[in-house]
Design a protein around this nucleic acid. Structure first.
Length: 468
RNA sequence: GGCCCGUUCGUCUAGUGGCCUAGGACGCCUGGUUCUCAUCCAGGAAAUCAGGGGUUCAAAUCCCCUACGGGCUACCA
């Protein structure tokens, strides 16, 4: 049974990376009839943001990646918030101490800080000097009796080669001598990521854990912990980091398009966002770029284990995503597009009024707009006139066009088009000018089609408003 | 500084020793269709495959070195 998990921290910011990771998890679990869980990693109380869990759920709901088990859904391995699992981590930390793989450290933050500064000054690798590792049982007992605050640190072995097996980069060997005596349990009783992830992935029977490559350097610590606990280690897949579009650093908050909300608010379709994410790390065997999300399962082979995706960071190219979004919009049926537009503009009073007023011709309008939209947000500009000022010459043209429209015996696409053509050739103007007269914009939905859908009086009224 | 991972058009990439005078996609440019703008169609510019050494009849592809980029190096995840 495949069990995957996404484990965000509730820090209030719905990062695109959450969707990116959940993509792997959901595809993997769905392809193998497994389960996808949400675990809230709220062990850093200084960064905790109230309500952030709701934002995480909103984000997952938007991209259609709701968990099978999680804090809201419940499940057989509850609770799903780490803050509610504290006794578990404490128990296992004690187990490590008893097994000789961890120890209590009574060093103050001040001592650690000055030590680190000293090391940096001497160009040494900053790391704990293992002072408390040498404490005798009696000394530990005395410190505990004195009520000294402590952390529990992992006892790194000497001269041991630790191999991390990753389905993307293969086997990576680390030397244990390079590893710091990592803090596993903080002085506030909360675990650090390293203890929590190992305990929870085991307790929750996770089979495949996907995380960013920024975790690869700490993976050997996790390998050792699994070994010390005597547990089978899940597959840890380290996926390439999303880089800023300038290639400098991880996709960060500084860039507006890091937030999932940016895409939702700017009229992107979640399917396109997800497709784009899959596409930048993987190439479809058929060479296509637009593909259903489940095709991505072909990249994640379990037997033999090999994630056939790229291994180094990718720049996030908003231009290409925008193009892809346009492609997705064009694939929609009229009904689907209308539904999405109405949902997108649900809080826009002007647009709600528009939908109501033109209800009878909405499908025709949408069909005309569909090839002209890259995002749902583009729709409003296409169907809403813009403010414009007109020159005397343009006012004259408005009068001329108005006269031509008046003279038409029938009000059809064909007759309107011929009237516009006549005006263009007689006045030697560009078609864009006619668009400006009618909509205030120099481009837009095809005029003969749109005007034919409306009443002749509406068109004349518009032109008269210009000439006055 | 140390340890990991990586390096093909501006960007995402194809490429697993000969089919590569390096293919595709986005973006950009030109033309066609046309009432505008898009869509669609046709075409174009754009990578001496990071650099240097090997190995080989043959290297973008294998090996080594260098450079560069990214990640990590917290009682943050």
């Amino acid at each position: 049974m495949v069990r995957t998990r996404v484990a965000p921290s509730p820090t209030g910011f719905p990062h695109l990376g959450l969707v990116y990771q959940a993509l792997f998890d959901t595809v993997l679990s769905r392809a193998h009839g497994g389960k996808f869980l949400l675990r809230i990693e709220d062990t850093d109380r200084t960064r905790f943001v109230e309500g952030a869990e709701n934002v995480i759920y909103d984000t997952l709901a938007w991209v259609g990646m709701m968990p099978d088990e999680g804090p809201r859904e419940g499940g057989p391995v509850a609770p799903y918030r780490q803050s509610e699992r504290l006794p578990l981590y404490q128990k296992y930390a004690q187990q490590l101490i008893d097994g000789g793989h961890a120890y209590r450290c009574f060093c103050t933050k001040e001592r650690l800080e000055t030590m680190r500064q000293e090391q940096e000054k001497n160009h040494q690798a900053p790391r704990y000097d293992r002072l408390c590792r040498a404490l005798s049982d009696d000394e530990v007992k005395k410190n505990l009796a004195d009520g000294l605050s402590y952390t529990i640190r992992m006892k790194m072995p000497d001269h041991e080669a630790v191999v991390v097996h990753d389905p993307i980069v293969g086997a990576v060997t680390f030397q244990s001598d390079e590893l710091d005596d990592q803090v596993l349990l903080k002085s506030d009783g909360y675990p650090t990521y390293h203890l929590a992830v190992v305990v929870d992935d085991h307790e929750m029977q996770i089979t495949h854990a996907v995380r960013g490559t920024e975790w690869l350097p700490s993976a050997p610590k996790h390998v050792l912990l699994y070994k010390y606990f005597g547990w089978d280690m899940p597959v840890y897949a380290h996926i390439p980091i999303l880089l800023n579009s300038d290639g400098k650093g991880k996709l960060s908050k500084r860039h507006a398009h890091t937030s999932v909300m940016f895409y939702k608010e700017n009229g992107f379709l979640p399917e396109a966002v997800v497709n784009y994410l899959a596409n930048i790390v993987w190439n479809h065997p058929q060479g296509i770029e637009i593909f259903p999300v489940m095709d991505f399962a072909h990249a994640l082979k379990l037997d033999p284990l090999k994630f056939d995706i790229k291994s180094n960071g990718v720049r996030f190219d908003l231009d290409k995503l925008t193009w892809m979004n346009g492609e997705y919009i064009r694939m929609l049926t009229g009904e689907q597009l209308l539904e999405k537009l109405q949902a997108f503009y649900v809080n826009d009073a002007d647009m709600q009024k528009f939908f109501k007023e033109y209800e009878a011709i909405l499908f025709e309008i949408i069909a005309l707009a569909q090839t002209r939209m890259k995002t749902l947000k583009d729709f409003k500009d296409l169907v809403t006139p813009a403010e414009a000022t007109f020159t005397e010459a343009e006012k004259g043209l408005a009068k001329a066009l108005s006269d031509k429209f008046e003279a038409l015996s029938d009000w059809s696409k064909e007759s309107i088009l011929s009237a516009i053509r006549e005006l263009i050739s007689e006045q030697k103007i560009k078609g864009a000018v006619v668009y400006k007269l009618m909509t205030g914009r120099e481009q837009g939905l095809p005029l003969p089609e749109v005007l034919a859908l409306l009443k002749k009086e509406d068109a004349l009224e518009r032109l008269h408003s210009i000439t006055q």
